[in-house]
């Protein structure tokens, strides 16, 4: 079933649809939110409230062709608002959240054996050199598999900005990565 159909069922009040949406997206939402804050209680509460709200407001919800996009937009706005409140920063959700760090780490790189460690470390270092917004865009693109258009909506920035953020970020990461592959190749031969 595609997102459009599932969303329609939700709007019609089928509780199963809510459950399905939850099951399909919970891990992705959790992972996204945890990049803004390590506080898993805050993340859990926010996700809880979002799902309860979606259900309560189901009849007035707009249409969406990408449920994960809809949820990410809502989650992002809400989590930034709550972090801002906790840290006493007014209007953080409207700024480009320079004050907030988007933390990316690579814990499950699935590359072979001891290479996994080397690989993680190298990328880890390279990731540190990127800006929060670059990291967030790359995360949405490569972890959530989002299209550029959807990333625009979630991050509330222009198409060209998204492309630039990702392009430059990837080039930076890849330079590190390629150097690393070259070194490993050298050591192995």
């Amino acid at each position: 079933m595609d997102d459009l159909m599932l969303w329609m069922q939700l709007k019609k009040g089928e509780h199963q649809a809510l459950k399905k949406i939850y099951d399909q997206n919970i891990r992705n939402l959790e992972n996204y939110a945890l990049k803004f804050t390590p506080d898993s209680n805050l993340v859990e509460d926010t996700i809880h409230d979002i799902f309860v709200q979606i259900w309560q407001k189901r009849e007035t919800l707009g249409d969406t062709d990408s449920i994960i996009k809809y949820l990410c937009v809502t989650l992002r706005r809400e989590i930034i608002r709550r972090i801002g409140k906790a840290q006493n920063i007014v209007g953080l959700e409207h700024s480009d959240h320079k004050e907030l760090d988007f933390t990316l780490s690579i814990e499950d790189a699935i590359i072979q054996g001891e290479r996994a460690d080397m690989n993680s470390k190298k990328l880890q270092e390279a990731l540190k050199s990127l800006s929060s917004r670059q990291k967030e865009a790359i995360f949405l693109r490569y972890y959530e598999s989002m299209e550029y258009e959807d990333i625009c909506s979630v991050m509330d920035i222009s198409y060209q900005s998204v492309r630039n953020l990702i392009s430059k970020g990837i080039i930076e990461l890849r330079n590190q990565f390629t150097i690393w592959i070259f070194v490993v190749f050298f050591l192995n031969h």
Partner: peptide, 19 residues
């Protein structure tokens, strides 16, 4: 290799069933 390496999956912290 590059795309595989860009997997930003964290350890799961939420008990999804309880939630």
């Amino acid at each position: 290799r590059f795309v595989v390496a860009l997997d930003f999956h964290d350890e799961n912290k939420i008990d999804t069933k309880a939630l």
